[in-house]
Amino acid sequence: MKSFEFFAAKDSSDAVTLLAQHAANAKVKIIAGGTDLLADLKFAAHGPDVVVDISHVDDLKNITLTEQGLNIGALVTHTQIMRSPLIRQFFPALVDAAHTIGAVQTRNLGTLGGNLVTAVPSMDSGPTLMALEAIVTIAGNGGRRQVPLNEFFVGPRKTILKPDELLAEIIIPKQNLGKPTHFLKFGLRKGQALALVNVAASFWVDWEKNVFLAPRIGLGAVAPKVIRAPQAEAYLEGRTISAEAMAEAGRVAVGDAKPISDFRASAEYRRHLVAVLTKRALESAWTLAQTRRLEGWNGQRNA
């Protein structure tokens, strides 16, 4: 690893100050969990001049229910997501997604924010958060701004973050609290595997008409960034819930995906996976919707 200057931020405002100090005239990298960053830096021909450590920044480690929705601090680790009673209650899909990331050791270090900032198209946190229309808060020297996650990603390993900004929190909007969601990942093995394809599906149910409401599908590893599947979503919107509709939505989602062939899988295989996983994710989300209704959840959009 190339040498660099190291600064540890005490809190998020200190982190922003440090970034502002150094980003103007030096290449700066932020280290949180370090599971992606260090693996990269060890073999990088040109490393950063400055590394700002935010792993001790406690104000970005909270999971909070606010007026805006469920706020997850960017430094919440995958392990904390898996153990959080709030997330387990509202979004088991996020727990499933976190569980498929790396292995215990990397989940203990790696953070939700880090997973998003790395912006690898196969990231496992992406599809679920896309299907839940998450919003991210970005902190910079001039204050904080919020953008939909959909607009946060630019391309492979590229986000809209400026060199002096950091991702502060991820918000699942209030209208989606408890929205039945399911995440599925297909990797070549269980542990330490990158997704060939990962899919998350969410929808509300109009129980009187038995139709899909606000269906949202997130797809990973099938485009330069994590994407939504607009055609499949449009196909499902207002349609009567049936096994056939879910299978067809899977087929439609293939048209939304633009996978490439690489050493892990061919584009053709990835397209096949999109259809199958989308269908299965919808089926499981449907099962969850029914279970929650039986358990006395409102079952409606609660906003």
Binding site: I31, V51, S55, Q105, N108
Partner: peptide, 20 residues
């Protein structure tokens, strides 16, 4: 693998500055 603050982690993925 070592245990840091009760949790197993990859010690190759932590910088010294982070284990203060």
């Amino acid at each position: 693998t070592v245990i840091v603050d009760g949790q197993p982690v990859n010690s190759c993925l932590m910088l010294v500055g982070q284990v203060e």
